[in-house]
Simulated scan of single mutants.
Amino acid sequence: MSLIRRVARPMLAAMFVVGGLDQLRHPAKQAPKLAPLAEQAAPALHLPNDPELLVRANGAVMVGGGALFAMGRLPRITSVLLAGTLLPTTYVGHPFWEEKDPARRAQQRTAFLKNLGILGGLLLAAVDTEGRPGIAYRVHLATERAGRTAKTTRREARHAARAAKREARLAAHSAHDALT
């Protein structure tokens, strides 16, 4: 792991670990904000319509995913998980479009945009293969290799069949010559 990744991952993960711990300890703070969204989304997603439980679950994913991401464990998967926790947190926590007070609206918009920036960093982390080939590339190489092997095998089989045919003809001619 490069020095940049070793330093940047914990920096990016810190917000999730701290925010997740806060959600785990004090879910009642966020539950009223989440209640309208939970009412709409919970049945469709087959989740319980319990805002406090959903806040705690989000917090647990933030803490676990943040800790794993900070340590460099499963960074691509954990970055996607963290991005998934950031979406509802941003939507519920920073609805600047609902604010009437211009100062409060500006503050919420700044926090919203900050979270969008963090989301961008997580999306970059989700596609970062650390210089190693990704799964899609490895599958592509394996497919090409299998295709080349199959082509070579078919060609060798054709050559072997032709050689066997020639040998059979020679054997038939020599048998015919031996009888006559």
Rank of each mutant, 00 (worst) to 15 (best):
A31I: 13
A31W: 10
K33L: 14
L34G: 08
A35F: 10
P36N: 09
P36H: 04
L37P: 02
L37E: 11
L37G: 04
A38R: 06
A38T: 11
E39I: 13
E39Y: 04
E39S: 15
E39F: 09
E39D: 15
E39L: 12
Q40E: 14
Q40W: 08
A41M: 15
A42V: 02
A42Q: 10
P43W: 12
P43Q: 08
A44L: 15
L45G: 02
L45D: 13
L47W: 15
L47V: 08
L47E: 10
P48R: 13
N49V: 14
D50V: 12
D50I: 10
D50M: 14
D50S: 12
P51A: 09
E52C: 09
E52P: 09
L53R: 10
L54S: 08
L54E: 10
L54A: 11
L54C: 06
V55S: 03
V55M: 06
V55F: 02
N58M: 10
N58Q: 11
G59T: 12
G59S: 06
G59Q: 11
A60R: 00
V61W: 08
V61P: 05
V63C: 03
G64H: 03
G64D: 05
G64K: 03
G64E: 01
G64F: 02
G65P: 07
G65L: 01
G66H: 05
G66D: 04
A67R: 02
A67F: 02
L68H: 12
L68Y: 12
F69A: 03
F69H: 01
A70R: 09
A70N: 00
M71A: 15
M71V: 13
G72I: 13
G72N: 06
L74R: 09
P75D: 08
P75R: 07
R76N: 07
I77S: 09
T78I: 09
T78C: 07
S79D: 10
V80Y: 09
V80T: 03
L81W: 07
L81N: 02
L81E: 00
L82T: 00
L82Q: 11
L82G: 01
L82F: 01
L82P: 01
A83S: 02
A83I: 00
G84Y: 04
G84E: 04
T85S: 14
L86P: 02
L86F: 02
L86E: 04
L87G: 06
P88F: 05
P88Y: 01
T89V: 12
T89M: 07
T89I: 11
T89Q: 03
T90L: 15
T90E: 14
T90D: 09
T90S: 13
Y91N: 08
Y91I: 15
Y91S: 13
Y91W: 14
V92F: 05
V92T: 03
H94K: 04
H94E: 02
H94D: 06
H94C: 01
P95D: 04
P95F: 08
F96L: 06
F96Y: 14
W97G: 07
W97L: 06
E98P: 04
E98W: 07
E99K: 09
E99G: 05
